[in-house]
Write a protein that binds this DNA or RNA. Structure first.
Lengths: 223, 223
DNA sequence: CTCGAAATATGAGATATCTCATATTATTCA
DNA sequence: TGAATAATATGAGATATCTCATATTTCGAG
Protein backbone atom coordinates (compact mmCIF):
# COMPACT_ATOMS: atom_id res chain seq x y z
CA UNK A 1 0.00 0.00 0.00
CA UNK A 2 1.23 3.43 -0.86
CA UNK A 3 0.06 6.74 0.54
CA UNK A 4 0.59 9.51 -1.95
CA UNK A 5 2.66 12.38 -0.59
CA UNK A 6 3.79 15.82 -1.66
CA UNK A 7 3.71 16.59 -5.35
CA UNK A 8 2.26 13.19 -6.32
CA UNK A 9 -0.66 13.73 -3.97
CA UNK A 10 -1.22 17.32 -5.06
CA UNK A 11 -1.27 16.28 -8.69
CA UNK A 12 -3.69 13.43 -8.12
CA UNK A 13 -6.06 15.60 -6.11
CA UNK A 14 -5.91 18.24 -8.80
CA UNK A 15 -6.75 15.82 -11.59
CA UNK A 16 -9.38 13.86 -9.69
CA UNK A 17 -11.57 16.10 -7.66
CA UNK A 18 -14.27 14.72 -5.41
CA UNK A 19 -15.42 18.11 -4.25
CA UNK A 20 -18.77 17.52 -5.94
CA UNK A 21 -19.61 14.73 -3.49
CA UNK A 22 -19.71 17.00 -0.46
CA UNK A 23 -20.98 20.45 0.33
CA UNK A 24 -18.00 21.23 2.54
CA UNK A 25 -14.24 21.28 2.10
CA UNK A 26 -12.81 17.82 2.54
CA UNK A 27 -9.40 18.28 0.96
CA UNK A 28 -7.43 19.20 4.07
CA UNK A 29 -7.09 15.82 5.74
CA UNK A 30 -7.87 13.55 2.86
CA UNK A 31 -5.34 10.90 1.82
CA UNK A 32 -4.79 9.10 -1.44
CA UNK A 33 -4.09 5.37 -1.09
CA UNK A 34 -2.92 2.99 -3.75
CA UNK A 35 -3.13 -0.77 -3.26
CA UNK A 36 -1.63 -3.47 -5.40
CA UNK A 37 -3.52 -6.38 -6.83
CA UNK A 38 -4.40 -8.98 -4.16
CA UNK A 39 -3.58 -6.60 -1.32
CA UNK A 40 -6.12 -6.32 1.51
CA UNK A 41 -7.60 -2.86 1.82
CA UNK A 42 -9.54 -3.87 4.92
CA UNK A 43 -8.90 -6.99 6.97
CA UNK A 44 -11.96 -9.00 7.89
CA UNK A 45 -13.02 -8.19 11.44
CA UNK A 46 -10.90 -5.04 11.76
CA UNK A 47 -12.75 -1.73 11.68
CA UNK A 48 -11.19 0.71 9.25
CA UNK A 49 -10.34 4.30 10.14
CA UNK A 50 -11.31 5.73 6.80
CA UNK A 51 -14.21 6.11 4.48
CA UNK A 52 -12.85 5.17 1.07
CA UNK A 53 -14.05 6.40 -2.28
CA UNK A 54 -12.75 4.33 -5.16
CA UNK A 55 -11.34 6.41 -7.99
CA UNK A 56 -9.79 3.68 -10.16
CA UNK A 57 -9.57 -0.08 -10.01
CA UNK A 58 -11.60 -2.98 -8.67
CA UNK A 59 -11.93 -4.93 -5.45
CA UNK A 60 -13.87 -7.76 -3.84
CA UNK A 61 -15.81 -8.05 -0.59
CA UNK A 62 -15.24 -11.32 1.24
CA UNK A 63 -16.64 -12.93 4.35
CA UNK A 64 -15.39 -16.12 5.96
CA UNK A 65 -17.87 -18.47 7.59
CA UNK A 66 -17.25 -20.65 10.60
CA UNK A 67 -17.33 -23.77 8.48
CA UNK A 68 -14.43 -22.45 6.46
CA UNK A 69 -16.44 -21.54 3.39
CA UNK A 70 -15.66 -18.18 1.91
CA UNK A 71 -18.26 -16.00 0.22
CA UNK A 72 -17.41 -13.34 -2.31
CA UNK A 73 -20.28 -11.06 -1.42
CA UNK A 74 -19.82 -8.51 -4.12
CA UNK A 75 -17.51 -6.68 -6.48
CA UNK A 76 -16.44 -3.08 -5.92
CA UNK A 77 -15.76 -0.74 -8.81
CA UNK A 78 -14.77 2.85 -9.45
CA UNK A 79 -17.07 5.36 -7.72
CA UNK A 80 -18.11 2.92 -5.00
CA UNK A 81 -17.60 3.55 -1.32
CA UNK A 82 -15.77 1.31 1.12
CA UNK A 83 -16.16 1.57 4.87
CA UNK A 84 -19.52 3.32 4.76
CA UNK A 85 -21.05 0.64 6.97
CA UNK A 86 -18.55 1.41 9.71
CA UNK A 87 -19.09 5.14 9.29
CA UNK A 88 -22.83 4.71 9.82
CA UNK A 89 -22.99 1.86 12.33
CA UNK A 90 -21.20 1.50 15.63
CA UNK A 91 -21.88 -2.20 15.66
CA UNK A 92 -20.92 -3.96 12.47
CA UNK A 93 -18.93 -7.02 11.53
CA UNK A 94 -16.34 -5.73 9.09
CA UNK A 95 -15.93 -7.71 5.90
CA UNK A 96 -12.61 -8.19 4.17
CA UNK A 97 -11.90 -6.06 1.09
CA UNK A 98 -9.27 -7.23 -1.36
CA UNK A 99 -7.99 -5.37 -4.39
CA UNK A 100 -8.41 -7.38 -7.59
CA UNK A 101 -6.52 -4.85 -9.69
CA UNK A 102 -4.34 -1.93 -8.77
CA UNK A 103 -6.75 0.39 -7.01
CA UNK A 104 -6.57 4.04 -6.03
CA UNK A 105 -8.94 5.49 -3.44
CA UNK A 106 -9.51 8.65 -1.55
CA UNK A 107 -9.33 7.93 2.17
CA UNK A 108 -11.37 10.25 4.35
CA UNK A 109 -10.44 9.87 8.03
CA UNK A 110 -13.44 9.15 10.27
CA UNK A 111 -12.14 11.06 13.24
CA UNK A 112 -11.79 14.27 11.27
CA UNK A 113 -14.93 14.20 9.22
CA UNK A 114 -17.49 11.85 10.74
CA UNK A 115 -19.65 14.59 12.24
CA UNK A 116 -19.59 16.76 9.14
CA UNK A 117 -20.32 13.85 6.83
CA UNK A 118 -23.34 12.81 8.85
CA UNK A 119 -24.69 16.34 8.63
CA UNK A 120 -24.16 16.89 4.95
CA UNK A 121 -27.34 16.42 2.95
CA UNK A 122 -25.48 16.22 -0.33
CA UNK A 123 -23.23 13.42 0.87
CA UNK A 124 -26.06 11.62 2.63
CA UNK A 125 -28.24 11.75 -0.45
CA UNK A 126 -25.54 10.09 -2.51
CA UNK A 127 -25.05 7.56 0.25
CA UNK A 128 -28.75 6.63 0.35
CA UNK A 129 -28.66 6.00 -3.38
CA UNK A 130 -25.53 3.93 -3.12
CA UNK A 131 -26.95 1.90 -0.24
CA UNK A 132 -30.36 1.42 -1.80
CA UNK A 133 -28.75 0.02 -4.94
CA UNK A 134 -26.56 -2.20 -2.80
CA UNK A 135 -29.49 -3.50 -0.77
CA UNK A 136 -31.57 -4.09 -3.88
CA UNK A 137 -28.73 -5.90 -5.56
CA UNK A 138 -28.16 -8.18 -2.58
CA UNK A 139 -31.88 -8.91 -2.32
CA UNK A 140 -31.96 -9.85 -5.98
CA UNK A 141 -28.93 -12.09 -5.67
CA UNK A 142 -30.36 -13.71 -2.59
CA UNK A 143 -33.72 -14.55 -4.02
CA UNK A 144 -32.24 -15.66 -7.33
CA UNK A 145 -29.75 -17.93 -5.67
CA UNK A 146 -32.59 -19.78 -3.99
CA UNK A 147 -34.98 -19.81 -6.90
CA UNK A 148 -32.68 -20.89 -9.73
CA UNK A 149 -30.01 -23.52 -10.27
CA UNK A 150 -26.44 -22.65 -11.14
CA UNK A 151 -27.13 -23.05 -14.84
CA UNK A 152 -29.15 -19.84 -14.95
CA UNK A 153 -26.99 -17.80 -12.62
CA UNK A 154 -23.81 -18.83 -14.37
CA UNK A 155 -25.20 -17.95 -17.78
CA UNK A 156 -25.97 -14.49 -16.45
CA UNK A 157 -22.55 -14.16 -14.91
CA UNK A 158 -20.77 -15.24 -18.07
CA UNK A 159 -22.63 -12.70 -20.18
CA UNK A 160 -21.95 -9.96 -17.66
CA UNK A 161 -18.24 -10.58 -17.36
CA UNK A 162 -17.29 -11.77 -20.84
CA UNK A 163 -15.08 -9.45 -22.83
CA UNK A 164 -15.44 -9.49 -26.60
CA UNK A 165 -17.12 -12.85 -26.52
CA UNK A 166 -14.48 -14.43 -24.32
CA UNK A 167 -15.16 -15.56 -20.77
CA UNK A 168 -12.02 -15.85 -18.66
CA UNK A 169 -12.85 -15.53 -14.98
CA UNK A 170 -10.93 -17.55 -12.45
CA UNK A 171 -12.95 -20.60 -11.44
CA UNK A 172 -12.06 -20.19 -7.79
CA UNK A 173 -13.40 -16.65 -7.68
CA UNK A 174 -16.59 -17.62 -9.44
CA UNK A 175 -17.21 -20.46 -6.98
CA UNK A 176 -17.01 -18.07 -4.06
CA UNK A 177 -19.21 -15.58 -5.86
CA UNK A 178 -21.93 -17.94 -6.99
CA UNK A 179 -21.64 -20.03 -3.87
CA UNK A 180 -21.07 -23.44 -5.43
CA UNK A 181 -18.30 -25.97 -5.28
CA UNK A 182 -15.45 -25.97 -7.72
CA UNK A 183 -16.50 -29.38 -8.89
CA UNK A 184 -20.02 -28.34 -9.69
CA UNK A 185 -18.97 -25.20 -11.52
CA UNK A 186 -16.80 -27.31 -13.82
CA UNK A 187 -19.69 -29.70 -14.35
CA UNK A 188 -21.99 -26.98 -15.60
CA UNK A 189 -19.28 -25.35 -17.71
CA UNK A 190 -18.71 -28.71 -19.36
CA UNK A 191 -22.44 -28.99 -20.01
CA UNK A 192 -22.38 -25.58 -21.69
CA UNK A 193 -19.55 -26.80 -23.90
CA UNK A 194 -21.36 -30.06 -24.70
CA UNK A 195 -24.40 -28.06 -25.76
CA UNK A 196 -22.08 -25.83 -27.75
CA UNK A 197 -23.05 -22.67 -25.88
CA UNK A 198 -19.35 -22.27 -25.14
CA UNK A 199 -16.15 -23.52 -26.63
CA UNK A 200 -13.10 -24.05 -24.55
CA UNK A 201 -9.87 -22.43 -25.72
CA UNK A 202 -6.98 -23.12 -23.44
CA UNK A 203 -8.22 -21.77 -20.18
CA UNK A 204 -10.71 -19.38 -21.64
CA UNK A 205 -14.16 -20.02 -23.03
CA UNK A 206 -15.50 -18.53 -26.20
CA UNK A 207 -19.20 -17.78 -26.36
CA UNK A 208 -20.70 -19.62 -29.31
CA UNK A 209 -24.43 -19.20 -28.73
CA UNK A 210 -25.08 -16.11 -26.72
CA UNK A 211 -28.80 -16.37 -27.42
CA UNK A 212 -28.95 -19.66 -25.55
CA UNK A 213 -27.09 -18.20 -22.62
CA UNK A 214 -29.36 -15.21 -22.82
CA UNK A 215 -32.42 -17.37 -22.56
CA UNK A 216 -31.05 -18.97 -19.43
CA UNK A 217 -30.13 -15.59 -17.94
CA UNK A 218 -33.34 -13.83 -18.89
CA UNK A 219 -35.34 -16.04 -16.57
CA UNK A 220 -33.66 -14.38 -13.58
CA UNK A 221 -34.94 -10.94 -14.40
CA UNK A 222 -38.30 -9.66 -13.36
CA UNK A 223 -39.67 -7.43 -16.04
CA UNK B 1 -57.53 -0.34 3.52
CA UNK B 2 -58.74 2.56 5.57
CA UNK B 3 -57.52 6.14 5.43
CA UNK B 4 -58.03 7.85 8.76
CA UNK B 5 -60.08 11.03 8.52
CA UNK B 6 -61.17 13.90 10.76
CA UNK B 7 -61.11 13.30 14.47
CA UNK B 8 -59.67 9.77 14.17
CA UNK B 9 -56.75 11.06 12.16
CA UNK B 10 -56.18 14.03 14.45
CA UNK B 11 -56.12 11.77 17.48
CA UNK B 12 -53.74 9.26 15.91
CA UNK B 13 -51.33 11.98 14.83
CA UNK B 14 -51.47 13.47 18.28
CA UNK B 15 -50.63 10.20 20.01
CA UNK B 16 -48.03 9.02 17.51
CA UNK B 17 -45.81 11.82 16.42
CA UNK B 18 -43.13 11.31 13.81
CA UNK B 19 -41.95 14.88 13.95
CA UNK B 20 -38.60 13.69 15.31
CA UNK B 21 -37.79 11.94 12.02
CA UNK B 22 -37.66 15.16 10.01
CA UNK B 23 -36.36 18.64 10.49
CA UNK B 24 -39.31 20.20 8.74
CA UNK B 25 -43.09 20.13 9.17
CA UNK B 26 -44.53 17.07 7.51
CA UNK B 27 -47.95 16.96 9.16
CA UNK B 28 -49.90 18.99 6.61
CA UNK B 29 -50.27 16.41 3.83
CA UNK B 30 -49.53 13.26 5.71
CA UNK B 31 -52.07 10.43 5.72
CA UNK B 32 -52.64 7.59 8.13
CA UNK B 33 -53.38 4.23 6.45
CA UNK B 34 -54.60 1.09 8.09
CA UNK B 35 -54.42 -2.26 6.27
CA UNK B 36 -55.97 -5.52 7.31
CA UNK B 37 -54.09 -8.78 7.59
CA UNK B 38 -53.25 -10.26 4.14
CA UNK B 39 -54.04 -7.02 2.38
CA UNK B 40 -51.50 -5.77 -0.17
CA UNK B 41 -49.97 -2.43 0.77
CA UNK B 42 -48.04 -2.28 -2.49
CA UNK B 43 -48.70 -4.46 -5.52
CA UNK B 44 -45.67 -6.03 -7.11
CA UNK B 45 -44.57 -4.03 -10.14
CA UNK B 46 -46.69 -0.95 -9.30
CA UNK B 47 -44.79 2.10 -8.05
CA UNK B 48 -46.33 3.54 -4.89
CA UNK B 49 -47.15 7.23 -4.42
CA UNK B 50 -46.15 7.34 -0.79
CA UNK B 51 -43.25 6.81 1.51
CA UNK B 52 -44.65 4.75 4.36
CA UNK B 53 -43.43 4.68 7.91
CA UNK B 54 -44.78 1.71 9.85
CA UNK B 55 -46.19 2.66 13.25
CA UNK B 56 -47.74 -0.66 14.30
CA UNK B 57 -47.98 -4.13 12.80
CA UNK B 58 -45.98 -6.36 10.49
CA UNK B 59 -45.67 -7.03 6.79
CA UNK B 60 -43.77 -9.12 4.27
CA UNK B 61 -41.81 -8.23 1.13
CA UNK B 62 -42.42 -10.62 -1.77
CA UNK B 63 -41.04 -11.02 -5.23
CA UNK B 64 -42.30 -13.41 -7.89
CA UNK B 65 -39.84 -15.03 -10.27
CA UNK B 66 -40.46 -15.97 -13.85
CA UNK B 67 -40.42 -19.66 -13.00
CA UNK B 68 -43.32 -19.13 -10.63
CA UNK B 69 -41.30 -19.41 -7.45
CA UNK B 70 -42.06 -16.80 -4.85
CA UNK B 71 -39.44 -15.39 -2.49
CA UNK B 72 -40.27 -13.82 0.82
CA UNK B 73 -37.37 -11.39 0.82
CA UNK B 74 -37.82 -9.97 4.27
CA UNK B 75 -40.14 -9.09 7.12
CA UNK B 76 -41.15 -5.52 7.89
CA UNK B 77 -41.81 -4.37 11.44
CA UNK B 78 -42.77 -1.23 13.34
CA UNK B 79 -40.44 1.73 12.61
CA UNK B 80 -39.42 0.39 9.21
CA UNK B 81 -39.92 2.31 5.99
CA UNK B 82 -41.76 1.12 2.91
CA UNK B 83 -41.37 2.70 -0.51
CA UNK B 84 -37.98 4.25 0.23
CA UNK B 85 -36.48 2.53 -2.81
CA UNK B 86 -38.96 4.26 -5.06
CA UNK B 87 -38.38 7.59 -3.34
CA UNK B 88 -34.65 7.33 -4.00
CA UNK B 89 -34.50 5.59 -7.38
CA UNK B 90 -36.28 6.45 -10.56
CA UNK B 91 -35.65 3.00 -11.93
CA UNK B 92 -36.65 0.21 -9.58
CA UNK B 93 -38.65 -2.96 -9.81
CA UNK B 94 -41.25 -2.60 -7.06
CA UNK B 95 -41.68 -5.59 -4.80
CA UNK B 96 -45.03 -6.61 -3.35
CA UNK B 97 -45.71 -5.74 0.28
CA UNK B 98 -48.35 -7.68 2.15
CA UNK B 99 -49.62 -7.02 5.68
CA UNK B 100 -49.22 -10.05 7.91
CA UNK B 101 -51.08 -8.42 10.80
CA UNK B 102 -53.24 -5.34 10.98
CA UNK B 103 -50.80 -2.58 10.17
CA UNK B 104 -50.94 1.19 10.59
CA UNK B 105 -48.54 3.45 8.69
CA UNK B 106 -47.95 7.08 8.05
CA UNK B 107 -48.12 7.74 4.34
CA UNK B 108 -46.05 10.66 3.11
CA UNK B 109 -46.99 11.65 -0.46
CA UNK B 110 -43.99 11.76 -2.80
CA UNK B 111 -45.26 14.61 -4.90
CA UNK B 112 -45.57 16.92 -1.89
CA UNK B 113 -42.42 16.07 -0.01
CA UNK B 114 -39.89 14.39 -2.27
CA UNK B 115 -37.72 17.47 -2.69
CA UNK B 116 -37.75 18.39 0.97
CA UNK B 117 -37.05 14.82 2.07
CA UNK B 118 -34.05 14.55 -0.20
CA UNK B 119 -32.66 17.76 1.28
CA UNK B 120 -33.19 16.96 4.92
CA UNK B 121 -30.01 15.74 6.61
CA UNK B 122 -31.90 14.40 9.61
CA UNK B 123 -34.17 12.25 7.49
CA UNK B 124 -31.36 11.19 5.18
CA UNK B 125 -29.17 10.17 8.11
CA UNK B 126 -31.90 7.90 9.44
CA UNK B 127 -32.41 6.55 5.95
CA UNK B 128 -28.73 5.68 5.52
CA UNK B 129 -28.83 3.75 8.79
CA UNK B 130 -31.99 1.95 7.79
CA UNK B 131 -30.57 1.07 4.38
CA UNK B 132 -27.18 0.02 5.67
CA UNK B 133 -28.83 -2.40 8.08
CA UNK B 134 -31.02 -3.66 5.28
CA UNK B 135 -28.09 -4.19 2.92
CA UNK B 136 -26.03 -5.88 5.60
CA UNK B 137 -28.89 -8.13 6.52
CA UNK B 138 -29.47 -9.18 2.92
CA UNK B 139 -25.76 -9.82 2.41
CA UNK B 140 -25.71 -12.02 5.48
CA UNK B 141 -28.76 -13.96 4.38
CA UNK B 142 -27.32 -14.36 0.93
CA UNK B 143 -23.97 -15.70 1.95
CA UNK B 144 -25.47 -17.91 4.65
CA UNK B 145 -27.98 -19.42 2.26
CA UNK B 146 -25.13 -20.53 0.03
CA UNK B 147 -22.75 -21.65 2.73
CA UNK B 148 -25.05 -23.66 4.99
CA UNK B 149 -27.73 -26.30 4.56
CA UNK B 150 -31.30 -25.77 5.69
CA UNK B 151 -30.60 -27.47 9.00
CA UNK B 152 -28.56 -24.53 10.26
CA UNK B 153 -30.70 -21.78 8.83
CA UNK B 154 -33.90 -23.34 10.09
CA UNK B 155 -32.50 -23.74 13.60
CA UNK B 156 -31.70 -20.05 13.61
CA UNK B 157 -35.13 -19.16 12.28
CA UNK B 158 -36.91 -21.29 14.87
CA UNK B 159 -35.03 -19.70 17.74
CA UNK B 160 -35.70 -16.24 16.37
CA UNK B 161 -39.42 -16.67 15.88
CA UNK B 162 -40.37 -19.03 18.71
CA UNK B 163 -42.59 -17.56 21.38
CA UNK B 164 -42.23 -18.96 24.90
CA UNK B 165 -40.56 -22.09 23.63
CA UNK B 166 -43.21 -22.74 21.01
CA UNK B 167 -42.54 -22.54 17.28
CA UNK B 168 -45.66 -22.01 15.20
CA UNK B 169 -44.85 -20.40 11.88
CA UNK B 170 -46.78 -21.38 8.78
CA UNK B 171 -44.77 -23.87 6.76
CA UNK B 172 -45.65 -22.18 3.50
CA UNK B 173 -44.29 -18.82 4.67
CA UNK B 174 -41.11 -20.39 5.95
CA UNK B 175 -40.50 -22.14 2.63
CA UNK B 176 -40.72 -18.85 0.78
CA UNK B 177 -38.47 -17.18 3.34
CA UNK B 178 -35.76 -19.82 3.53
CA UNK B 179 -36.10 -20.65 -0.13
CA UNK B 180 -36.66 -24.39 0.10
CA UNK B 181 -39.43 -26.69 -0.98
CA UNK B 182 -42.28 -27.55 1.34
CA UNK B 183 -41.25 -31.15 1.19
CA UNK B 184 -37.74 -30.50 2.31
CA UNK B 185 -38.76 -28.22 5.16
CA UNK B 186 -40.96 -30.99 6.56
CA UNK B 187 -38.07 -33.43 6.17
CA UNK B 188 -35.77 -31.36 8.31
CA UNK B 189 -38.46 -30.59 10.87
CA UNK B 190 -39.07 -34.32 11.20
CA UNK B 191 -35.34 -34.84 11.70
CA UNK B 192 -35.38 -32.27 14.49
CA UNK B 193 -38.22 -34.17 16.13
CA UNK B 194 -36.44 -37.50 15.69
CA UNK B 195 -33.38 -36.05 17.40
CA UNK B 196 -35.68 -34.68 20.08
CA UNK B 197 -34.71 -31.07 19.47
CA UNK B 198 -38.39 -30.38 18.92
CA UNK B 199 -41.60 -32.08 19.90
CA UNK B 200 -44.65 -31.79 17.76
CA UNK B 201 -47.87 -30.67 19.44
CA UNK B 202 -50.78 -30.48 17.07
CA UNK B 203 -49.50 -28.05 14.49
CA UNK B 204 -47.01 -26.37 16.73
CA UNK B 205 -43.57 -27.49 17.77
CA UNK B 206 -42.22 -27.25 21.29
CA UNK B 207 -38.51 -26.65 21.69
CA UNK B 208 -37.03 -29.42 23.81
CA UNK B 209 -33.30 -28.85 23.36
CA UNK B 210 -32.63 -25.24 22.61
CA UNK B 211 -28.91 -25.76 23.15
CA UNK B 212 -28.78 -28.18 20.23
CA UNK B 213 -30.62 -25.74 18.01
CA UNK B 214 -28.34 -23.04 19.28
CA UNK B 215 -25.28 -24.97 18.25
CA UNK B 216 -26.67 -25.33 14.74
CA UNK B 217 -27.56 -21.64 14.58
CA UNK B 218 -24.33 -20.35 16.08
CA UNK B 219 -22.36 -21.62 13.14
CA UNK B 220 -24.02 -18.99 10.93
CA UNK B 221 -22.73 -16.07 12.94
CA UNK B 222 -19.34 -14.54 12.42
CA UNK B 223 -17.92 -13.46 15.71
C1' DC C 1 16.15 -22.85 -13.18
C1' DT C 2 13.57 -25.10 -9.67
C1' DC C 3 10.41 -25.96 -6.14
C1' DG C 4 6.15 -25.28 -4.05
C1' DA C 5 1.83 -23.17 -4.14
C1' DA C 6 -2.16 -22.11 -6.76
C1' DA C 7 -5.19 -23.20 -10.45
C1' DT C 8 -7.14 -26.50 -13.46
C1' DA C 9 -9.11 -31.07 -14.26
C1' DT C 10 -11.74 -35.40 -13.68
C1' DG C 11 -13.96 -39.53 -11.39
C1' DA C 12 -17.09 -41.57 -8.12
C1' DG C 13 -20.00 -41.85 -4.41
C1' DA C 14 -22.78 -39.21 -0.95
C1' DT C 15 -26.39 -35.98 0.39
C1' DA C 16 -29.27 -31.95 0.20
C1' DT C 17 -32.97 -30.60 -2.07
C1' DC C 18 -36.68 -30.82 -5.68
C1' DT C 19 -40.78 -32.53 -8.18
C1' DC C 20 -44.84 -34.84 -8.40
C1' DA C 21 -48.55 -37.53 -6.76
C1' DT C 22 -51.84 -38.11 -3.39
C1' DA C 23 -54.38 -37.96 1.28
C1' DT C 24 -55.95 -35.77 5.24
C1' DT C 25 -57.32 -32.05 7.98
C1' DA C 26 -58.51 -26.90 8.80
C1' DT C 27 -60.59 -22.72 7.42
C1' DT C 28 -63.36 -19.72 4.96
C1' DC C 29 -67.26 -18.03 2.95
C1' DA C 30 -71.61 -18.09 0.37
C1' DT D 1 -74.10 -26.23 6.58
C1' DG D 2 -71.58 -27.51 2.74
C1' DA D 3 -68.30 -26.89 -0.72
C1' DA D 4 -64.21 -24.79 -2.02
C1' DT D 5 -59.68 -23.51 -0.68
C1' DA D 6 -55.61 -23.47 2.09
C1' DA D 7 -52.56 -25.91 5.03
C1' DT D 8 -50.59 -30.09 6.61
C1' DA D 9 -48.64 -34.64 5.68
C1' DT D 10 -46.06 -38.50 3.51
C1' DG D 11 -43.87 -41.53 -0.13
C1' DA D 12 -40.78 -42.26 -3.97
C1' DG D 13 -37.88 -41.18 -7.50
C1' DA D 14 -35.08 -37.48 -9.79
C1' DT D 15 -31.44 -34.02 -9.89
C1' DA D 16 -28.50 -30.37 -8.25
C1' DT D 17 -24.81 -29.97 -5.64
C1' DC D 18 -21.11 -31.53 -2.35
C1' DT D 19 -17.04 -34.08 -0.65
C1' DC D 20 -12.99 -36.34 -1.28
C1' DA D 21 -9.28 -38.28 -3.80
C1' DT D 22 -5.99 -37.58 -7.08
C1' DA D 23 -3.40 -35.82 -11.33
C1' DT D 24 -1.71 -32.26 -14.23
C1' DT D 25 -0.49 -27.68 -15.39
C1' DT D 26 0.80 -22.88 -14.43
C1' DC D 27 3.35 -19.44 -12.16
C1' DG D 28 5.80 -16.76 -8.83
C1' DA D 29 9.76 -16.55 -5.44
C1' DG D 30 14.23 -17.62 -4.32
Amino acid sequence: MEVYKGEKKRLYLENNSIAHLFSFQVEAFIEVHEYRRDEWIIQEGMRPDFLFYVMEGKAKIYVTHQNGKVSLINFINAHDYIGEMELLNDVYYTKGIQASTKIICFAIPFHRYRTQLLDDAKFLREMTKFLSVKATHMAAKYSQSLAFPLENRLADFILQTADEGIYKEKHVTVCDYLGVSYRHLLHVLTQFCDKNYLQKEGRNYQIKQSHSLNELAEVLKNK
